[in-house]
Simulated assay, not measured.
Amino acid sequence: MEVAWDASIEELQTIEGIGPKLSQIIHHQRQAIVPDHLLDGYLEANPSFITPADPEYPNRLWEIADPPVLLHYQGDLELLKTIDQATTVALVGTRKPSDYGQRWTRRLSRSLSQHGWTIVSGLAAGIDAQAHQSCLEVQGATIGVLGTGIDVVYPRSNQKLYDQMAQVGLILSEYPAGTAPNRTHFPERNRIVAGLCRATLVMEAGHKSGALITARLANEYGRDVYALAGSLDNPEAAGSLNLIHQGAQIITGEARLLESLGTIPTLDQLDLFDGVIGSAVTPSQPMIQLPPELHNIWQTIANSPEPVILDHIVEGTGLPTGNVLSGLLELELMGVVEQQAGMRYQTAS
């Protein structure tokens, strides 16, 4: 860092993308900045934040392509522990939900909270607010990720909810205090929501809803994606229905959803597999009983003498890419599959 700060104009120009004009601007503006004063001012305005160097930083965010460099926070930082225990689920959707969308968001948020899941959303109007509020009503744990500075409430109508979450929940933002709403920040915020969670539930979303960005990112990260089927007459459900068409798992009720999520092992439950975790797994048969889809994925990997790339697993199983990615993550957590460099997979040794 010190070397970069002290670099001459000529040295700056050796960096790709920095030409003579930009190097002159950097050199000129750098002279007016005192780094220690700049840092002191930042710390005064932003006293509470963590970085990837801190033990509280969620390991799960290291699994995404662009983890946030800073996470400013208000509230109970202990809630971050639930993230690496894989008991976090995102509930996201439109800012203008129907009565049906609101009702099911409330039901699922309460039910998941009462079964130990931490509810994550973006503290926006509509589905997000319903998810957070319903969780708080049953004394559940909830995390809000902002697209503004940690001290900026948007929309203002969520002030009371924000105050509640700052006291008994957790609010996160990668943006410094005072950062106003910006349309580019909310899609960026969505990658953190998806990255923090083992599963993302799209409760109701139109064709252009930001919730679809969260779902797409969750799928890319190998996390489970669920969608609530809505009415064909409701434009705010069109995006959700399209997700189901593309392979998202359909939400058919509380019990079925909890059962499905229950098949995702949490890090503190891995010892439930009768001592199999950490023991040898032979190429002919895993030592735990796998559901058919997971066994299909495992068998495709086990049949190869070399680590298998993702495309070959998809081809060999005939399953959608999203199903293969989520299945691979489950198999890794069970300890029967290992990921190698370049997204290649082999059976655990």
Rank of each mutant, 00 (worst) to 15 (best):
residue 117 W to L: 15
residue 118 T to E: 02
residue 120 V to C: 06
residue 125 A to W: 02
residue 132 H to Y: 02
residue 133 Q to A: 15
residue 133 Q to M: 12
residue 134 S to G: 10
residue 136 L to Y: 00
residue 136 L to A: 03
residue 141 A to R: 14
residue 142 T to H: 03
residue 145 V to N: 04
residue 145 V to T: 11
residue 146 L to I: 05
residue 146 L to Y: 08
residue 146 L to V: 09
residue 147 G to E: 04
residue 147 G to K: 07
residue 148 T to Q: 07
residue 148 T to W: 05
residue 149 G to N: 05
residue 149 G to C: 11
residue 150 I to L: 10
residue 152 V to S: 11
residue 153 V to M: 06
residue 154 Y to D: 02
residue 157 S to N: 11
residue 158 N to C: 10
residue 159 Q to H: 11
residue 159 Q to S: 12
residue 161 L to I: 11
residue 162 Y to R: 02
residue 169 G to F: 00
residue 171 I to M: 14
residue 171 I to P: 05
residue 172 L to F: 04
residue 173 S to Q: 05
residue 174 E to C: 04
residue 174 E to K: 05
residue 179 T to R: 07
residue 182 N to Q: 13
residue 184 T to H: 14
residue 185 H to Q: 10
residue 185 H to C: 10
residue 190 N to F: 01
residue 190 N to I: 03
residue 192 I to Q: 09
residue 193 V to W: 00
residue 193 V to F: 01
residue 193 V to D: 03
residue 197 C to V: 05
residue 200 T to H: 01
residue 201 L to G: 10
residue 201 L to D: 04
residue 201 L to Y: 02
residue 204 E to M: 12
residue 204 E to R: 09
residue 207 H to E: 12
residue 209 S to D: 07
residue 213 I to P: 03
residue 214 T to K: 04
residue 215 A to M: 11
residue 216 R to Y: 03
residue 217 L to Y: 12
residue 217 L to A: 12
residue 218 A to F: 00
residue 221 Y to M: 12
residue 221 Y to I: 06
residue 222 G to E: 01
residue 222 G to T: 05
residue 223 R to W: 02
residue 224 D to R: 13
residue 224 D to E: 14
residue 224 D to I: 08
residue 226 Y to V: 15
residue 227 A to I: 14
residue 228 L to W: 07
residue 229 A to M: 11
residue 230 G to P: 05
residue 231 S to T: 09
residue 232 L to T: 14
residue 232 L to R: 11
residue 232 L to A: 13
residue 234 N to G: 05
residue 234 N to S: 15
residue 236 E to P: 01
residue 238 A to S: 15
residue 239 G to E: 05
residue 239 G to R: 09
residue 241 L to V: 13
